[in-house]
Design a protein around this nucleic acid. Sequence first.
RNA 1: GGCGAUAUGGUGUAACUGGUUAACACGUCGCCCUCUCAAGGCGAAGAGUCCGGGUUCGAGCCCCGGUAUCGCUACCA
Length: 513
Amino acid sequence: MTSEFINKATAPVRVRIAPSPTGDPHVGTAYIGLLNYLFAQQRGGKFILRIEDTDRTRFVSTSEQMIFDALRWVGLQWDEGPDVGGPVGPYRQSERTEIYREYCQKLIDSGHAYRAFETPEELEEERKAQMAAKTAPKYNGPSRYYTAEQAEAAIAAGKPYTVRLRVPNGEKGPGVSSTTFRDELRGDITFDHHNVDDQVLLKSDGYPTYHLANVVDDHLMGITDVIRAEEWISSTPKHVLLYQAFGWELPRFWHMPLLRNIDKSKISKRKNPVSLIYYRQAGFLPQALLNYLGLMGGGMAQPTEQEIVSKGLDMKLSDIFSIEDMKEKFDFQRISLGGPVFDLVKLKWMNGEYLRKLSPDEFFTALRQTILSDDYIKAIAPLVQTRIETLGQFGDMTGFFFADNIMPAPELFVPKKRTLEETLAFATDLLAALETSDWNTEAIDAAVRATLTAKEWSVKEGFMLLRAILTGSTASPPLLESLVVFGKARSLDRFRRFMEAQKKAAALANRGK
RNA sequence: GGCGAUAUGGUGUAACUGGUUAACACGUCGCCCUCUCAAGGCGAAGAGUCCGGGUUCGAGCCCCGGUAUCGCUACCA
């Protein structure tokens, strides 16, 4: 396929999601994935999965496979991707670095980009000064104005550099002073170039930033419609500038509302379970999750009066609908732009609806595939075998593996020599340490012990606290192994819910005083 | 701070594109059913559509001006 010849106005649609393998697969990815998938399905187009692994500092090696698995689990199927191939691969950005370098060079040659030799420290200093002066923090280094000779000299001197986009600012004559693009949901959006930074395109490690890689790939892969989250609106002018610099035809842009926490901020793991692994392990059905995601931001058309009459009693639009219903009725033009709060309570209700609709056999199968799978029980069994006298005690000892609402009382989790406040402060640090930890016994052990040492807590105190939070009890199967079996997503979720509950309790107690 | 986007009960959406008392779902509360808890059934409270002007016979839908919230403001995506 030669993307040069794709006429984006009339060609069959090609869309994509582009997750970054930086951790657990995210509900937001499933949300945007669903939208892209529907868009392609409705128009007989292609849905592509591209892995954007250009950030080497945040790269997590296990993440990519988890993304594949999680997306397959929810039932989203891509036509092209790193694992299934396709005509415009490779579909992993780390395998395309040569391409980016080549296109970056073109930009430098045409004057649309330049090498910047400022160090991160210099940039940081500049930023601070600008903040102090209350002006917009923007790149303002001398490299932008280097002559070819000066640049050559700096390269020859071995100075590391980044490549930055030269945003036209009218400095030499009356250049273009603003960029306007059309958002298919919002209409025209204009950004003055004074507010568009000279974005880094190529980092000093040779990897591209999102902005360059994304535009180059979208063009080379023939993407006709960029359907992504609202947080990208501000950087779209940079992307438009890049398309123009290359002389490429623009795709259509559709910016979707951002999923929110209860407090309306962008959905985050601190305030919401956000890992798809969590939802799978906690026993949500993929159909229910997809259905719920389809509700976010509207989009499902109301039945017309004709439909109501012809289809009889089905007067109201039900909140319950399948992916097939969505393919038939979901209307992108109807999407409402307010950021929808991701409401776990309603998701649970909906999951319950789906659970109840299952036949007894299907329900049994669902249990056996998730919470009561052989794999899970096999992993748990050795932890209790030496600790029980009858098989009947298995349940007593392992209840917390199968439960959702574990909440220890303060007398259980506060060590004798500590106050509640001390304990919660320690727990906060412990949670932070666990969040960044790998999930095997050695790593967790190290994370806990590091926190202990830092806070001058005894080993016993620290592990007891963690045990209480995980199991709701002071006696349990071996802690580290239990944590591993229970999984990072669910363990951390339980820990966060514990912190949340304690915070609420503390607030209540304060009000009582 | 700057720039951008957004705004309908606590939450998600609807209101046939200006036309009667703003509808549905979740949640909350009450009643019924029931050995319990759910589920199910019935019912209630809860918004006058962010605020202020304007246009119009008529505005949640149009115009102007505010406000609030969110996002971006990285060699992260």
